[in-house]
Design a binder for these strands. Structure first.
Lengths: 202, 202
DNA sequence: TTGCTCTTGTCAAGTTGCTTGACACTCGAT
DNA sequence: ATCGAGTGTCAAGCAACTTGACAAGAGCAA
């Protein structure tokens, strides 16, 4: 798992490019991000940015996916630290929502004035969030199985439950309506009820 | 002073190569270091090692110079923290000698059985130590001037004093005869006497 | 000693990744 | 409407790394 030299170099370029893009987003919003600007900030040619990250839309998606990684780290930590399935879910949701409130990138995008065309970026977190939901789903599922192997759901049931959790949390991130702790408790409450119903039917 | 992307990549290759070489030295001695081994450990071709580091002898020198950097960091720290010229010199010497006793690389080389041809490497610290003395001299000189601008030596006098300090310390590193604190006090004592003599003559 | 093997130092040719310059296209501003 | 700025894409050039090769030296065995 240790990164080889060549991987490190490739990874370094990608990280630097995304760092530069993120800095601009956080300072001036997504509309201020240009491919030339990214290239200039890192000291490579614009073509290299296209080679490495693809189109401008791909840059937004890559930024979102990288930020997603930070969130999934929190999920793994919280799940591992909790005792009990429902408490693990609640704690993980809470952690994610707190991070979502603190993340400059998320706040910049979610909190942007709708008129600005930062909406391009916001769409990735909402209407185009397919890959995010998928990736997060895989991680959450695995974290659940790792830490609570006796989860009573069957495989396909677990898929549905996980996807529901992810979608609920993503919704609370993009459109917060209450404290992270309250929102997390709400999500956990739904799951707890589902578990109870599942037990009663079997 | 922040490293640009391209500098980072070049520096990364060099660091990885030296890391690999140092690992072998610390585990199995200098004689076990091969150019192919370094290349293989980092995942580049042997030719690239030659391009980046030169000959095998150059690798040993580069390792020594890199380790020297760690020592000079200590010098700068200690000088900045001390109050008084002589105390700064004493503290810096002490720090360097302690680090020399703890550095695995230094202990491996200095402590190697003379019969082994790790002596190749040892020579760099002793008979071929020209560049080391020069580099260390420049840094020590600057550290002295930065922290004790009222040092009473003239320029050429300072050169002699600094070089003497460096040579004394290097000798204590390669052939320790007493505690770092004792050896450092000895060096400082010499300098203190020189300063007193200098003052008396002027 | 001869012969075998490993390593070094070096070269030339091939591959890969980044740069440069160019072109067509879109979009907002003058 | 046209200008300027940005995007997306291409081809040619360039620098770094790879590959395969070779001569030379050191260590070791028969």
């Amino acid at each position: 798992m240790t990164a080889t030299y060549r991987e490190s170099v490739q990874g370094l370029l990608r990280e630097r490019l995304l760092d530069a893009a993120q800095r601009v987003v956080e300072d001036s919003g997504w509309s201020a991000v240009t491919m030339s600007g990214i290239a200039g900030a890192v000291g490579v040619s614009r073509q290299t940015v296209h080679n490495e990250l693809g189109t401008r839309h791909d840059v937004a998606q890559a930024l979102a996916m990288r930020e997603l990684g930070r969130f999934l780290d929190v999920v793994r930590e919280r799940m591992a630290a909790a005792d009990g399935l429902v408490e693990g879910i609640r704690s993980a949701c809470e952690g994610v929502l707190e991070l979502g409130r603190e993340s400059v990138l998320i706040r910049t995008i979610v909190g942007s004035v709708p008129s600005e065309n930062d909406a391009d970026f916001l769409k990735i977190l909402t209407t185009e969030s397919g890959e995010i939901v998928d990736t997060a789903g895989v991680v959450v599922r695995q974290a659940l199985l790792d830490n609570f192997p006796d989860v009573p759901f069957a495989d396909d049931e677990l898929d549905v439950a996980v996807e529901s959790i992810v979608r609920l949390v993503l919704s609370h991130v993009t459109r917060p309506s209450k404290d992270p702790s309250r929102a997390a408790a709400d999500v956990a409450w739904i799951i707890e009820l589902s578990l109870a119903g599942h037990a009663a039917r079997s």
